[in-house]
């Protein structure tokens, strides 16, 4: 019984959202709606229950949306692609330092619009709706959230080093 309940609460919603996302992309005939990293976030949160992510559910909505919108507008600038990618990396690291978070998928949502040349507002709507849904589904399905564990102070040195290497 427990496993059926688990399946209904965890596995089904995660896969349902992923297929809805792809279905929406087909209906609107717009592939920018497909956000690969969102599927990873759903599966990581609902099925594997990554405690570090579940501890602060609102960040799951806020940070990927911020970096995605930032990436979207950076992509509109008339710049060399490499310059844009470096700008996105700087932006994401700045956001993560600002919110004292280590939510790595924020990198992917930031980089995605630049790599796929997303240019319709559909991309922005998609990320806002999908991450908001994730936040709400965690609130609904997980009444007993793990306590916000004292977060190990992420060393900025690591971040900056990684940033400099990745931009290389």
């Amino acid at each position: 019984m427990l496993s059926v309940k688990n399946w209904l609460h965890q596995t089904l919603p995660a896969y349902a959202i992923i297929f809805l996302m792809i279905g929406a992309a087909m209906v609107f005939n717009n592939r920018e709606i497909i956000l690969p990293e969102v599927s990873a976030l759903y599966i990581g949160c609902l099925i594997y229950q990554n405690p570090a992510w579940l501890a602060r559910p609102f960040h799951l909505f806020l940070l990927p949306s911020l970096t995605a919108v930032g990436g979207f507008f950076i992509n509109r600038l008339e710049l060399n692609l490499a310059v844009k990618l470096v700008m996105v990396l700087v932006l994401v690291v700045a956001v993560l330092i600002l919110f004292k978070s280590t939510l790595a998928p924020a990198f992917a949502t930031g980089l995605l619009p630049v790599i796929t040349h997303a240019d319709s507002m559909m991309f922005v709507y998609a990320i806002l709706v999908l991450t908001l849904l994730l936040y709400m589904s965690i609130r609904l399905l997980h009444q007993h959230l793990p306590p916000a564990e004292p977060i190990k102070r992420p060393s900025h040195q690591h971040k900056l080093l990684y940033l400099s290497f990745a931009s290389v």
């Binding site: 990873a40 060399n80 280590t102 980089l111 790599i115 080093l161 990745a166």
Partner: peptide
């Protein structure tokens, strides 16, 4: 510069997770 596909998001994500 021609290898514009170079920054593959999931790889960056895994790298970032690992360095912590």
């Amino acid at each position: 510069n021609w290898m514009f596909i170079a920054a593959i998001p999931p790889v960056i994500v895994v790298g970032y997770e690992s360095i912590h």
